[in-house]
Nucleic acid binder design. Structure first.
Length: 442
DNA sequence: TAAATAACTTAGGACAAGATAT
DNA sequence: ATATCTTGTCCTAAGTTATTTA
């Protein structure tokens, strides 16, 4: 039995949810304008609490073919109707909070979007053929006389090794204070040096996209450590770490190295490669249950989520559950200790067999309780790791997953949801059990 | 040539739907 | 059957990159 809302939604979708491109019926992603409301924003947003106004037909620009112009609601007119075949949006209006354009666009399930998605992964695969050269280059760049080149080298290292976002400049009055690689400030990194001086570590602590905290202590090469120290030298906390570097110059540098290469390709590349490598590493026995196989896949996926720093607040809450279990384990262990002592004294004072047996039983009960608690805690911990689905949706070449499923005789439906199956249907026919992300097929 | 703007991808949270416990 | 927890989808904010403009 479907709810009233669900029925209404289905009806609307049937009527407004599709468009025609080159004679093909294609699904639209968002076919409604955004409703008026109080703007919240994410993190400490300077515009939080402002009213986001109602969008009227007079605010909306329509982009469609000349022969089939949708009618505006009765008594209203569109702001403009244009016929631009170079862009993929169907309608747009200006957001009253940001002043940026918002679009009515195709669904990720539309043919055009799926082709674009496939292309994205092909570009990332191509990077594998060039990555050796690019890495050699950034080590060389760090040794340059020119500080700008040095900064470019170190930034490339961080983007490659830590999968950091490139970090465009943003307006402090308009948006929350978040950073990426190029916009890191001195206060966001702490250089740590161990006593033996062979162990070079850097602590990163900053707010990234969506004001999600990036907290990571990483071992870095000595050269990187030294360069970071020199970049920080003589600067205040709030000064830019890469003061001579811009996102534009970084992407300009990358462009001629490989067709289609930009900074974000490294994130896709390293995420997908990590999945492939983890799946290679984790053994799957032929007679394993499906649930075990899924667990293995999820572990590989978790490694990617960690790399990309993907997290959800439900997971943060989940860590409380893990802690609760840990506390219970501690309590039980204390109780066991006490029970053991009690038993010992009971034996000494010789109060009678009955009391002794009872205390033994109690101790046994505690032991069992402890072992179940330990299992439950492990499961909760694991559950905490696996729940991120973001990487699956945007960074992981679905063909890696398809191939792994085919290789290990598990149906893809066990890994992908219904929508993901549709979004990635291009991958199924393209990847056999031997597909490899790190080898170009012909 | 760099700044502004347009166009497009990626992201977590809200909430509904589904699953599981009671 | 109902409460409670988990998972999947939708929504739109917040990024990156491409293109246009001054």
């Amino acid at each position: 039995m479907k709810s009233k809302e669900a029925k209404q939604k289905l009806k609307e979708e049937k009527e407004y949810g599709y468009c025609t491109i080159d004679g093909r019926k294609e699904p639209i992603g968002n076919f409604k304008v955004e409703a008026p409301r109080l703007f919240r924003g994410r993190g400490e947003h300077p515009k939080q609490g402002r009213l986001k106004g109602r969008i009227m037909p007079e605010d909306v620009i329509i982009n469609c073919s000349r022969n089939k112009i949708p009618k505006p609601p009765l008594g209203h007119n569109w702001k403009e109707v244009r016929h631009d075949p170079k862009v993929t949006w169907l309608a747009c209006w200006t957001d009253s909070i940001t002043g940026h354009l918002r679009y009515i666009k195709l669904s990720p399930l539309a043919t055009l979007k799926m082709m674009k998605d496939c292309q994205k992964f092909e570009t990332a695969r191509r990077l594998h053929q060039h990555i050796h050269m690019i890495r050699e280059n950034y080590w060389k760049d760090m040794e340059s006389e020119d500080v700008q080149i040095q900064q470019r080298g170190v930034a490339m290292y961080l983007i490659d090794k830590l999968a950091l976002r490139v970090g465009n400049e943003k307006d402090a009055k308009e948006t929350a204070d978040t950073v990426g690689c190029c916009s890191l400030r001195c206060e966001h990194i702490t250089l740590m040096e161990e006593a033996d001086s062979e162990n070079y570590k850097v602590k990163f602590d900053f707010l990234g996209k969506d004001s999600i905290r990036y907290l990571n202590e990483v071992h870095v090469d000595k050269r990187v450590h030294q360069k970071l120290r020199s970049f920080k030298n003589g600067k205040e906390d709030e000064d830019k770490l890469f003061d001579e570097l811009s996102v534009a110059s970084l992407n300009k540098y990358l462009k001629p190295l490989m067709p289609g290469l930009t900074a974000r390709v490294f994130r896709t590349y390293n995420a997908s490669l990590t999945l492939q490598k983890k799946l290679d590493e984790l053994p799957v026995s032929v007679d394993a249950e499906d649930t075990e196989k899924i667990l293995i896949y999820n572990r590989a996926n978790a490694a990617v989520a960690l790399l990309c720093n993907h997290q959800r607040s439900s997971l943060k809450a989940n860590s409380n559950i893990v802690k609760k279990f840990e506390n219970k384990i501690k309590e039980t262990m204390k109780a066991m200790q006490k029970a053991k002592e009690d038993l010992a004294t009971a034996k000494k004072t010789y109060k009678g067999k009955k009391a002794e047996v009872k205390k033994k039983q109690y101790l046994h009960m505690l032991k069992e309780k402890l072992s179940t608690l330990k299992v439950k805690a492990a499961l909760a911990k694991e559950g905490k790791e696996i729940a991120s689905i973001v990487s699956k949706l945007y960074y992981l070449d679905p063909r890696i997953t398809v191939a792994w499923c085919k290789k290990h005789g598990i149906s893809i439906e066990k890994i992908f949801t219904k929508t993901q199956m549709k979004k990635f249907r291009w991958a199924d026919s393209m990847a056999g059990p031997d597909f490899r992300f790190d080898e170009l097929s012909h």
